[in-house]
């Protein structure tokens, strides 16, 4: 049975990609078959943390939305479509309604209410789905949402669906920051969710919000305290105040950034460093006790 692990955080920049890339590397190194999913479709960079792209295996367009097309010859300018649209995505124009693409959700209410059937819907491309083999020989399923795009949750859902067809032991999901649509799509139904927290009030606040979402989705959740030494007293406070098992504490060190710059996972870049030991300890617990 394939197991799914998601790495998420309420705040950005806490170390999701750091944990996700090293976890993938660790499991791969242990002889497991791992597929990594980069679910941060607005800033996809998990593959960079796994050495960059060695080979693109598959690339396809993702049609995640629809846009209304107005037949202005048929339109009788009754404006029922404008009244019905809950997203204020239609404006009165000279010949009929004008569609504001950035506000349209593509759900089709305008077409249904149009008495003369002057509105039809066509599929639009909202992103790309790419499967690449990283230089660390780990396949990465990644999405790239069109710039300024929406419906990132649907693309994330497609990425996970595609990863599940790839016959593997583990699917490692690097989530987007936050608690909204793409994050919910990243964590719903996973076997384990790991929240990465840094010792700042901003990160803790995000973690509490994310925990609440995870609870409502009934997802088994753990946490990792990252960069704990930038504020050790606050890190201790977090440990006391948060109602979730903390799998480990990782210190902050220049080698984390150096590893990124060299595009090599830290576990390979500095395998004997203190951080590497701590990471392996945490990942062993995940592998042997949690999953």
């Amino acid at each position: 049975m394939t197991k799914e692990i998601a790495i998420a955080s309420g705040k950005g920049g806490t170390g999701k990609t750091f944990i996700a890339s090293n976890l993938s590397f660790f499991l791969h190194d242990q002889g497991m078959k791992v597929v990594a999913v980069d679910a941060d479709v607005e800033a996809p960079d998990l593959v960079l943390a796994l050495g960059g792209i060695k080979k693109v295996i598959e690339s396809s367009s993702f049609y995640g939305s629809q846009l209304p097309k107005v037949d202005y010859n048929k339109c009788i300018k009754c404006w029922r479509c404008i009244e019905a649209c809950k997203f204020n995505a239609l404006l009165k124009g000279e010949n009929g309604p004008i569609v504001l693409h950035e506000l349209c959700e593509g759900l089709g209410t305008c077409a249904i209410v149009c008495p003369v059937k002057a509105i039809s819907f066509e599929e639009v491309k909202t992103g790309d789905l790419i499967i690449a083999l990283s230089k660390e020989d780990i396949p990465v399923v990644m999405g790239e949402l069109e710039l300024g795009g929406e419906n990132s949750g649907r693309l994330v859902y497609e990425l996970r669906k595609r990863a599940r067809t790839m016959q593997c032991d583990f699917i490692d999901i690097d989530s987007a920051p936050g608690i909204g649509c793409p994050v919910i799509s990243s964590i719903v139904g996973v076997d384990v969710l790991i929240i990465v927290i840094e010792p700042t009030p901003q990160s803790l606040k995000g973690a509490f919000r994310l925990l609440e979402v995870a609870k409502s989705l009934d997802v088994r959740t753990y946490a990792i305290l990252n960069k704990y030494d930038i504020n050790p007293s606050f890190a201790r406070e977090i440990e006391k105040s948060i109602d979730v098992d903390i799998l480990g504490r990782i210190a902050y060190n220049d080698s984390v950034i150096e590893a990124y710059t060299s595009m090599v996972p830290l576990l390979k870049f500095k395998p004997e460093s203190e951080i590497a030991w701590e990471l392996r300890k945490i990942f062993k617990v995940i592998l042997e006790e949690i999953i």
């Binding site: 950005g12 920049g13 941060d40 607005e42 800033a43 950035e102 949402l145 710039l147 300024g148 795009g149 929406e150 990132s152 987007a176 920051p177 936050g178």
Partner: peptide, 11 residues
Amino acid sequence: TPPGTSSGIYR
């Protein structure tokens, strides 16, 4: 703004 390149940020 939040991280990312969404339509909300574009606005």
